[in-house]
Write a protein that binds this DNA or RNA. Structure first.
Lengths: 130, 130
DNA sequence: GTGAATGCAAAAGCTTTGCACTCGA
DNA sequence: TCGAGTGCAAAGCTTTTGCATTCAC
């Protein structure tokens, strides 16, 4: 269903998500939102995230562990650290991917591209260097 | 740990995975492998897939649902159908992504690129066309 | 023979869901 | 008012794990 009411809970989830660039999962969001709306339940956090994703106000990232959420919806690549699991935004222009896929595969409907890199974040790169 | 013994179970998992291009999940692989090795358990399938991924003989795809596996390990883009969940290989050359990410972010260790598209597979595109 | 790998089953996440209650429009 | 949204708790699903047993080397 589409969002009909902007409740305290939903506003708080969206604000928490917009206030961070760490691509948190539902548990972290729950923990943060509870500071502002102590009565909120984890189920509501999940239902809210679901609704926000369906509305296109938030994107969901599937990296292997729990689903992570991002209120920054412009397509942009990520780096997933294979050591600590951190997700970082990359400053990298990669246009034309959807168009390229469309012309290579006219039989498909291509709507969106997801580009992620696997590697090490600066902290883990530092602590692993020999 | 590295793989030390190539048991019937592991051989069967690898062969099943190499025989299909459907990017199956652990449950499907279990079901197929059980036809050849009826005693196999789901836990062994998971442990085997884990080991094969660590060995680099198989890749794991995180698409939102259960993890899917692919014995075709050359980097190649996928299309994930948002309607039926199918995962298709795309015939699309996308080189230089890792290099581009490295030069944009020298502070990171970039090891691998994952490119996926979201959209509709041919069947779903057909059945949804107006 | 020996310990890596297995089978079984229990447990551990993460996420969804049913239901009665609440409250925003 | 009144039904969309919530809180709670139970359930669902995928995946992991402990332990005794088996079997590949």
């Amino acid at each position: 269903m589409a969002i009909k009411r902007f409740t305290r809970q939903r506003r708080a989830v969206l604000e928490v998500l917009r206030s961070t660039r760490r691509h948190p999962d539902a548990a972290w969001i729950y923990h943060e939102v509870k500071k502002r709306v102590p009565s909120i339940s984890l189920g509501t956090v999940y239902r809210t995230l679901d609704a926000l994703v369906r509305e296109g106000m938030v994107i969901a990232l599937h990296t292997g562990g729990p689903t992570r959420y991002d209120a920054f919806t412009e397509p942009h690549p990520h780096l997933v650290c294979r050591r600590c699991g951190a997700v970082l935004d990359l400053d990298l222009e990669v246009g034309g991917l959807v168009e390229a896929a469309r012309s290579a595969h006219p039989e498909l409907v291509v709507e969106r591209a997801w580009l992620a890199f696997e590697g090490l974040c600066p902290d883990c790169a530092r602590s692993l260097e020999s």
